[in-house]
Amino acid sequence: MVLNPARYLIRLDDLCPTMRRDRCEHFLSIVTSYKVAPILAVVPDNQDPELNLQSPDPEFWEWMRSCEAAGATIAMHGYRHQCTNQGKSLLGLHKETEFAGAEESLQREWIRCGLAILRGHGLNPRLFVAPRHGFDNATLRALACEGLGILSDGFARRPFMRSEVLWIPQQLWEPVPKETGLWTICVHPNTASATHEVKLQEFLAKSAHQFTSFADVVADTSLSRLLWNERVEEALTNLRVRVSRARSRTALSN
């Protein structure tokens, strides 16, 4: 059997009026110079002090509309990016999240309000990105009920259906060559290092032809569930990521 070559998506996170616009513009210029259409994860109503990095940009929303018109896909990145809940997330990568552990009715309200804010600014959010990968089954039900039934997260190698939500996996935080599968690379422009930037530029120079877009992924995806062997691989990858992060935190604390 001949396997299809790997495809890649790129997602830029933590976009809001008080982000470092210069950094985001820089990464966007790198990506778009190779004619790659990114996913832009926008915080509807940022209340996270860690994202208050400059005075509110009065042109932010017009900029986002221009990016969407040019081919970018808008994702709703949580609601206020306030990660104060300690509920058990389905992926278990962080102890504190925004959504996991909150009452389902409250999660639905947050999603409804976040969508209204983004749409009120003339944007068309197509998918959901949970801050710190923090979401639970209540989040999935809320997303489906509010009509935002696509999630960018998880460690499978292909999109799949679970709990009435289409999961488009996000497994990488820097470019890594892969042989097959769909791989989403997540970039945080506010904090990305110069090394990260160089890696991304070098990877795009070699592999830009393997990048795809959100629209093409959705159009090409059959709404199927993971097979048992794919679920096992997904769980093992999740475990490896959690162990790696735990080791990194231990090393930093020593």
Rank of each mutant, 00 (worst) to 15 (best):
E197C: 06
R225G: 13
W167E: 12
G154F: 03
W167F: 15
E202K: 12
L239K: 10
V165G: 03
E233P: 00
R157Y: 02
A192C: 10
S213A: 12
H188R: 09
L182P: 00
Q201P: 01
L200D: 06
N190V: 09
L166K: 02
L223N: 01
R157T: 03
S222N: 04
H209P: 00
F211D: 13
I185P: 00
Q210S: 11
V165D: 13
R225Y: 14
I168H: 03
S224R: 04
A208P: 03
S152V: 05
Q210D: 04
V187N: 00
K178M: 11
V218E: 02
E179P: 00
S152A: 10
S213F: 02
Q210T: 06
F155N: 06
N190F: 06
E164W: 05
F211L: 14
R162K: 11
S224E: 15
S163V: 04
L166H: 03
L227N: 13
P189V: 08
P175W: 08
Q201C: 15
H188S: 10
F203A: 08
F155P: 00
T180V: 02
A156Q: 03
E230A: 09
S224T: 12
P159C: 09
E233K: 08
V165A: 11
K199G: 05
T191A: 07
A194S: 06
C186R: 04
R162Q: 12
A205Y: 05
Q210F: 01
W183H: 15
V198T: 05
L200M: 08
I185K: 02
H196G: 09
F160N: 04
T237F: 14
Q170N: 12
L239N: 02
F155E: 06
L226N: 14
F211S: 11
L204E: 13
A208D: 10
D153K: 01
R231M: 14
H196L: 15
L226G: 07
R231D: 13
V217M: 05
Q170R: 15
L200W: 01
H209N: 15
E234W: 12
I168F: 09
T195W: 07
W173N: 07
K206I: 02
S222A: 14
S152L: 08
T191N: 05
